[in-house]
Write a protein that binds this DNA or RNA. Structure first.
Lengths: 149, 149
DNA sequence: CTGTGTGCAAACTCTTTGCATAAGT
DNA sequence: ACTTATGCAAAGAGTTTGCACACAG
């Protein structure tokens, strides 16, 4: 069984702001109010899939004053630091996943919701070689769902 | 082995405008100048991957006067008619593929180029069931490539 | 002729950026 | 203090829409 690193750098189950700050510092990010608050929202509750907009709304709802621009900046900084993974689904909307391990997704076209597929279940056979001069950086699998008629 | 329908409705290898018009009519689309010209660009030369912008530029270069808005409309109409398939890669850019059969893609992050992966080579094992009330509409596999250092 | 398609420009969505202010160390 | 992050508003990319004119049947 493969552990899903929904909690970066072995963050405890119910992380305190100080725990979160430590992880950020180790990632080379200054633990500012906003970053700590967003990191706490993201990493305190298991695997999550957010867009900039949903995370922004959630932060405001929890009375964490943060601008949408900062949410975008932060999501990208976390992604570069390896704390998040970006998932390309469609259109302009960028999804971010707190589970950075190798895994795949369901995407419900109707609700726009993204769900992890249990790591072990899918296996890909017969993956061809990368073309000359390139290497495979990652394999994305997206299983698209529609409502049953 | 599975035939790749890069030529919708069994379009001949070197289709005339009349051939293309027929395919459009059968798809319920009135064969206007622009649609015929775009369809000819798309379907006359094997499998292709275009964005609205690349197709627009190509049309203009071949002296086919068409607006970008019409290219967008046309690409979506063709997609709804089953003549094209849309591929979600990332960001705001929408890719369209003339190969509508079940197949997967390489995506070169560096060049932004999309390539088909030979149909038979990849096999996915252990695909989980769709969640309650939904059906799998399609499985997208995108193999991301980076330049070898 | 009649109705559908096209072109243009404006609107829209999501995302990024520049610069003054605020906060972290 | 010194440096880096934040907030705002404006700009940017890609896509879509509304409406007058043009074309296919």
């Amino acid at each position: 069984m493969h552990r899903s690193p929904s909690v970066p750098n072995r963050l405890p189950a119910a992380p305190t702001p100080a725990d979160v700050a430590k992880v950020l510092r180790e990632a080379g990010l200054r633990p500012t109010r906003q970053r700590v608050a967003l990191a706490h929202l993201l990493f305190a509750g298991g695997d999550r899939h957010v867009t900039a907009e949903t995370l922004h709304e959630e932060a405001l709802a929890r009375k964490v004053p943060v601008s949408l621009a900062t949410v975008y900046n932060t999501l990208h900084q976390f992604t570069e630091a390896g704390l998040l993974r970006e998932v390309a689904v469609e259109g302009a909307k960028a999804y971010f996943d707190t589970n950075t391990s190798n895994h795949y997704h369901f995407f419900c076209e109707h609700s726009g919701k993204l769900m992890d597929i249990a790591t072990g279940s899918i296996r890909i056979e017969g993956l061809p070689e990368a073309p000359e001069g390139t290497t495979i950086s990652r394999v994305d699998v997206l299983v698209r769902l529609v409502d049953k008629r």
